[in-house]
Every structure is written in C-alpha cells, then in structure tokens.
Simulated scan of single mutants.
Amino acid sequence: MDLESYKYIVVEGPIGVGKTTLTRKLAEHLGAQAVLEQPQENPFLEKFYRDAARYALQTQMFFLFQRIQQLQELAQSDLFHTRFVGDFLLEKDPLFARLTLADEELKLYEQLYQHMRPHAVQPDLVIYLQAPVETLLERIKKRGITMEASISPDYLQRLCDSYSRFFYNYDAAPLLIVNNEHMNMAEREEDFQQLLSHIIEMRGKRAFLNRGE
C-alpha cells in the first residue's frame, strides 16, 4: 500500500513517547492536516497533576468532550480530498479513566462515554509507539512542562501496561507497533524513512518496527 492511499493515520502511545512530534512530522510529509490533542486547553489538568483524586473526573470529562468534538468535525470532513494525521484514538480515553477515577466516578464516566461516543471514522493505520518508563521520564523531564514534573514512574508504568493490554487485542485498523526507545524520527531522517518504508511494506493487520541502539 503506497503512502498516498492512507487518508487517516493515528499515532498513539503513552505520555512522553513522541506521538505528537511524529504526528506533526507525518502530517507535514504527507501534506495532511494534523488533528492534535489540546491538553493546554484543559483547565483541570494542572490541578489534576497536583491532586489527582480531587480533579480526576473533571479532567477526564473535559478531555472526553474535547476529543469527541474533534472527531465529529473530522467525520464531517471530506476524506476523499483531505488527509489527516491524529495523535489520539478515542478508544484510549477509558484507559486513563480506569487509572484515575474512583469506582462511582468510573461508572458515571463509562455511562457518559457509551452514550456520547460517536460513530467515529476509523483510521487507515494506527502507529503505536512504545518506550520503557525510564525513557519516557527522561523525555518528559527534557521537554520541561512544569505541571508534568509530578508524574510518577508508577503511574507511567501502569499507563504503559494499559496501552499494551489495549493494543494486544486491537483489530479495528491495521496496527504498526514501533519501539521508539532508540529512534529519533523528528531529527534523524534515516529513522523517519525507516518508518515510512515499514508503512509502505505493511501486509495484513499487524507489523512491528524494532530498531536497537
């Protein structure tokens, strides 16, 4: 499948793995529109990082409404003439909810999620980026976003485990799993070209890209 055939690609993965950076680079390379999460617009996020138990529900609901609105706008677009690269799947939203919400809050969230969940456009390809927790922490520290400084290794490990379980059974779209520990697709053109080659050469529903040091 050549690159021109992909109309909607999604890049996913845990915090700090590089999904937004890759999304922007892919969108630029493909002449596509980037569909990006907007965490800076969430008024509860900084409070959540300081006091997760108190602000988890508000934070989660804001993101849910925001993501649904973005996907509804995407569904109304002309996918025959406009290409998109996004940095989130709506289906990953419950992963965060299950990590942060108390039992009664989670029940409320799940009811709202099932009620509001749109019939979203399915991607032609999902790229799932992986990296060890130690690498994620280094990257989070390097980018220097103040409110992320309190993210704990335990939370990141549980988040990575949740992503692994989710994508182990994922079959809604072709899936390319990329070990991003030793890759720098934003700054090393050979890494980015290797990714593009794997996308073009994909056959079937699942493929892997794992480059060592």
Rank of each mutant, 00 (worst) to 15 (best):
G13S: 03
P14D: 11
E37C: 04
L57D: 01
Y49E: 08
E28N: 09
H29Q: 13
P43H: 08
Q40A: 09
N42V: 08
E41R: 13
L30V: 09
R24L: 15
L64H: 12
K25H: 15
L64V: 12
E46F: 09
Q58V: 00
T23I: 15
P14Q: 02
R24F: 12
T23G: 02
K19G: 13
N42K: 03
F63I: 05
T59E: 02
G18D: 13
T20Q: 05
Q33N: 02
A53N: 13
N42P: 01
Q40F: 06
Y55P: 10
L30E: 00
Y55W: 15
G13H: 04
H29W: 05
G18R: 03
E37T: 01
L45M: 05
L57C: 02
V17S: 14
E12L: 01
V17A: 15
Y49Q: 04
V35R: 03
T23Y: 06
A56Y: 02
Y55M: 14
T21Q: 07
L57T: 02
P39N: 11
E46L: 01
T23V: 11
E37W: 14
R54E: 13
F48D: 04
A52H: 03
N42Q: 10
E41Y: 04
G16W: 07
I15Y: 06
Q33E: 11
A52D: 00
E46I: 04
N42T: 03
E41D: 14
V11S: 08
K47H: 09
K25V: 02
E46V: 09
M61K: 07
T23P: 12
L36S: 05
G16C: 06
F62H: 10
E28I: 00
A34N: 09
E41P: 03
A53F: 04
T21R: 00
